[in-house]
Design a protein around this nucleic acid. Structure first.
Length: 937
RNA sequence: GCUGAAGUGGUGGAAUUGGUAGACACGUUGGACUUAAAAUCCAAUGGAUAGUAAUAUCCGUGCGGGUUCAAGUCCCGCCUUCAGUACCA
């Protein structure tokens, strides 16, 4: 019997589906284990071999945990709202729902071929109304909450209104939008309804605010900070402008400290924790006021270097600062105005690419130094950001490089407050190894001493307070798009009102075209039925809007991260129609034990879902405050592009091995036209693209060699490898093994199909270990000692490999085991049936088939991962001579059974040692802690 | 610039955490089987020197130092690559 992977895999995949093998239920007798993958966005291009990498690892891990006796939840779904489907809809007029569904089917077909143990009965899709109903509900909860800094948690907005009624907001500490109006309970009760709502917006966690946003004209929408890379949009690489718009926002800044501190509670890679720490960007410093000479206003600045206060020689305001124009003197005002305009027209990209270009203008006004009372000129410069700190800085040119450059450029005085430090070329920016000078009572002090001293002085004078600043901004939550969750919000006289929870979901309306409207409204502006009837509580035609009973509904939709921020909660109880998930399910399944996915979501999805989880915890909807206990970031699989050389300006191509110093261009060709030895199929190439039909190929013996280059797998480079073809040629088990064998899960690694014959050969060898021409050859006989050794060594290794997520070394250990057992001619079922069990997480199809062929021969229980026995693990002591400084020594490595015995005894009892010593008695025995003993002869 | 990760044969990568570096696999070379090819099986495969040979010796984990009986692994100083971030006061 031959190993026929095609029929075997088909057979078992069918069997698993028909028997609902992977359906999971709550089982209180078993411990739970929750393994989750980052769910895919179903793009039109389908899967390439890089996509399933993480899924294979999580599948192996969850199958392994099942064998260890856990009740494992291993679900899968689709992140099916998003921009590409919408852009495709704009081009073709097809409803995104249709194309999304089509893409999902393609994905599902591809995934099914790989033999995953997903519980598909729990599948979710974020674009499904049954799902986004709950996304909308969470939005409502966020809208109806505020962040109480005293209790350090989110609370219902009704509590806040009660506080306002009782005592106004003067005593309140809460996370709010900047510069919230202060009022008493009396004033509160006198406010109009609209006014009250406007004030509440400053407190709500989901709030509407006119804020400066990243506008992308090409995409016609705003983007969050994490959707922008190097000043251009992540998707498409388009230009970004700053614009003031009325937008929904998420007050994630309220959670900054908890998001930072709780990183210590979770088992994530240090790099991703560090990325989140940087993104949150906590800095501790001092906020202080500088009075403006001849004005009532003062300028508030934030600094992390209060110790350098005596080095201040000017101040700088951001162009957007509210005082910039106000304090400019008449002679300078026109110039300042022009500068503000210039700065606002500079796009994000320009600002980043021209970092070194120094621009600024003098306001003509002066501030008073709070300690020396000296006059300090106030400048405007766009190196100061409006969005960080207070939008104004005290400039210390001797201690900050940007201040230094600015001062040099505009010829401003640079006083030196660092003793014996040369500042004639650059600022001295270190926080250590200095002593202050020219700093009055701080003279002679170090950074720490000076900082403490100045802070207590400023706090005593009332001119400054200790403050913490975060880089983390509130997240913009509106998108001017069609294919996303609609907001359950309508507008009464411009004031947002929530549609009650019981009328959810608010379904996405149909539109004729998916473009923004002519007047610039988002695509939902085209929906005919998009008005809310407050009396009937239903959606009605827009024509009926009277602003008395029938009102317009929000036209924006939610961003992509809305649906993905909480999806792990839905898997545990996906069909629940009355709640996000039942308490029973929450108590049993709890949060995710192992989460596997790419690291590109470090500052997006992974931060937002932590934020929402903490919020839901605060509001007592869920009993835990972190979503993912353990996170593994799988590295990308890179493509191995094939490149041929064309003589510049001709249609003549030279084989790689014949290339000398000719002037050539590199042309990417389809990797499927190249065999394992890097030889190009020229006939295939001619058929592939018409340009090659008439081309001339220079090669030796008709063997045309290509160059290989490792780069991201992409259609553009023709280096995409489809897993379907691999399954077709070698089978899913070979693919699963090979993807793991490529290298450590977290590492970036190139794909090279030629290597797959290795894992495929291994499976053939495995097959031959059990089956020969006449059928199954496993016998119910006692195993040899060698067989037992191999088996138990392997069990131990595999277990520790999988537990430590070293999926690649486990594959090697399987290969070693099968090679050894083949050499030993092992046929004992006592060895070969446990071997199948430990292999089954990796290669479920072939092991299932062999199990069924073994019939009743198995001598152990099928369902559990076998325990290894220590007695078979003993290895012989090793001894080897070495030479150190001319002296000969013997190195002795102790075996397990000898480790705790007397030295003399070892030499006496161990044949191996005696043979090596050949009768020579050691002069001295040196015992070094550890396993090695040095014998000096 | 800052932060994080990493540099090992022709290639992907192992190395029980300080103990015979290169496991396992690909590729390459040679051999067997075959009319031939494919498939399969066997052997060799880091480099250098010596030897007909078994073998022996030396050099080898990015570079330069150090600790240690012993360093791919620990310490100090560099170089390079990848990733994240970027006027954050």
């Amino acid at each position: 019997m031959k190993y026929n992977f095609k029929s075997i895999e088909k057979k078992w995949q069918k069997y698993w589906t028909e028997n609902n093998t992977y359906k999971t239920k709550i089982d209180l007798d078993k411990k739970k284990y929750y393994v989750m993958d980052m769910f895919p966005y179903p793009s039109g291009e389908g899967l390439h071999v890089g996509h399933p990498l993480g899924y294979i690892a999580s599948d192996i891990y969850s199958r392994f945990k099942k064998l260890k006796g856990f009740n494992v939840l291993h679900p899968q779904g689709y992140d099916s709202f998003g921009l590409p489907a919408e852009q495709y809809a704009i081009q073709t007029g097809q409803h995104p729902k249709t194309t999304t569904e089509k893409n999902i089917n393609t994905y599902r077909n591809q995934l099914d071929k790989i033999g995953f143990s997903f519980d598909w009965s729990r599948e979710i899709r974020t674009s499904n109304p049954d799902y986004y109903k709950w996304t909308q509900l969470i939005f409502i909860e966020l809208f109806e909450s505020w962040y109480d800094k005293n209790q350090d948690k989110a609370r219902p907005i009704d509590d806040l209104i009660r506080i306002f009624n009782k005592s106004g907001n003067q005593q309140l500490t809460s996370s709010t939008t900047k510069n919230t109006l202060k009022f008493s309970s009396k004033q509160w009760s006198d406010f109009s309804k609209e006014n009250k709502e406007n004030i509440l917006q400053d407190y709500r966690i989901a709030y509407l605010a006119e804020s400066e946003v990243n506008w992308c004209p090409e995409l016609g929408t705003v983007l969050a900070n994490d959707e922008i890379i190097n000043g251009v949009s992540e998707r498409g690489g388009f230009k970004i402008e700053k614009r003031l718009m009325l937008q929904w926002n998420m007050r994630i800044s309220a959670y900054a400290d908890r998001l930072l501190n709780d990183l210590d509670k979770i088992d994530w890679s240090s790099s991703i924790k560090e990325t989140q720490r940087n993104w949150i960007g906590k800095s501790i410093g001092v906020s202080m006021n500088f009075n403006i000479i001849g004005h009532d206003n003062s300028i508030e600045v934030f600094t992390t270097r209060p110790d350098t206060i005596f080095g201040v020689s000017f101040m700088t305001l951001s162009p957007e600062h509210e005082l910039t124009l106000k304090i400019s003197i008449n002679e300078n005002r026109a110039e300042v105005q022009e500068y503000i305009k210039f700065a606002s027209n500079r796009s994000e990209k320009d600002r980043i690419s021209e970092v070194k270009k120094i621009t600024g203008v003098f306001t003509g006004s002066y501030a008073e130094h709070p300690l020396t009372k000296k006059k300090i000129p106030i400048w405007v410069g766009d190196y100061v950001l409006a969005s960080y700190g207070t939008g104004a800085v005290m400039s210390v040119p001797c201690g900050d490089q940007r201040d230094y450059n600015f001062a040099k450029h505009f010829d401003i005085n640079i006083p030196n407050i660092f003793k014996d430090k040369d500042i004639s070329y650059e600022a001295f920016v270190d926080k250590e190894n200095f002593e202050l000078q020219n700093s009055s009572f701080l003279d002679g002090l170090s950074f720490d001493d000076a900082t403490n001293s100045i802070i207590s002085r400023l706090e005593k004078d009332g001119t400054g307070t200790k403050e913490i600043n975060y880089r983390l901004r509130d997240a913009v939550f509106s998108r001017q798009r069609y294919w996303g969750e609609p907001f359950p919000v309508y507008y009464v006289n411009g004031v947002p009102k929530i549609i009650e929870k019981k009328y959810l979901p608010i379904k996405l309306p149909d539109v004729e075209k998916y473009l923004p409207t002519e007047s610039g409204d988002p695509p939902l502006g085209r929906a005919k039925y998009w008005a809310w009837d407050e009396k009937e509580n239903k959606i009605v035609s827009k024509n009926k809007i009277d602003n008395k009973i029938i009102f317009p509904i929000e036209l924006n939709t939610m961003p992509g991260w809305a649906g993905s921020s909480w999806y792990f909660l839905r898997y545990i109880d996906p069909k629940n129609s009355s709640k996000i998930c039942s308490n029973e399910a929450l108590d049993y399944w709890s949060n995710v034990d192992l989460y596997i996915g790419g690291n590109e979501h470090a500052t997006g999805h992974l931060l937002y879902s932590r934020f929402w989880t903490k919020f839901l915890y605060d509001r007592e909807i869920i009993p835990f405050d972190e979503p993912f206990k353990k996170l593994i970031n799988q590295g990308m699989i890179l493509g191995s592009s094939a490149i041929i050389y064309r003589l510049s300006g001709t249609n003549k191509y030279i084989s790689k091995d014949l290339l000398k110093n000719e002037d050539v261009e590199e042309i990417h060709v389809d990797v499927n036209l190249v065999n394992f030895s890097d030889e190009l199929d020229i006939e295939g190439l001619k058929k592939w693209q018409p340009i090659f039909e008439e081309a001339e190929f220079v090669s030796k013996n008709n063997v045309f060699m290509v160059e290989r280059k490792t780069e991201k797998m992409s259609k553009r480079w023709y280096n995409v490898v489809n897993p379907d073809l691999i399954c077709e040629d070698y089978g899913a088990d070979s693919l699963r093994l090979f993807e793991m064998f490529l290298g450590p899960l977290e590492q970036y690694k190139p794909w090279n199909t030629s290597g797959i014959v290795g894992t495929h050969n291994f499976l053939k060898k495995l097959w031959k270990l059990y089956v020969d021409e006449s059928g199954i050859k496993v016998k119910n006989i006692k195993p040899e000692l060698d067989n037992l050794k191999t088996l138990h060594k392997t069990i131990k290794k595999i277990e520790s490999d999988i537990e430590s997520y070293s999926f690649n070394t486990a594959v090697s250990n399987f290969m070693i085991a099968v090679n050894e057992l083949t050499d030993q001619n092992c046929v004992s079922s006592e060895i070969l049936s446990p071997l199948l069990i430990i292999l089954s997480p990796y290669v479920p199809h072939i092991t299932e088939e062999l199990w069924s062929l073994l019939g009743n021969q198995e001598s152990i229980i099928k369902e559990s991962f076998p325990n290894f026995e220590k007695k078979y693990l003993k290895e012989e002591s090793k001894i080897y001579p070495i030479s150190i400084n001319g002296k000969v020594r013997l190195k002795l490595e102790l075996s397990l059974d000898l480790a705790n015995k007397e030295i003399e005894k070892i030499i006496m009892t161990n044949d191996n040692v005696l043979n090596k010593l050949e009768g020579v008695k050691p002069k001295r025995i040196i015992i070094v802690p550890g396993k090695i003993i040095n014998l000096v002869i």
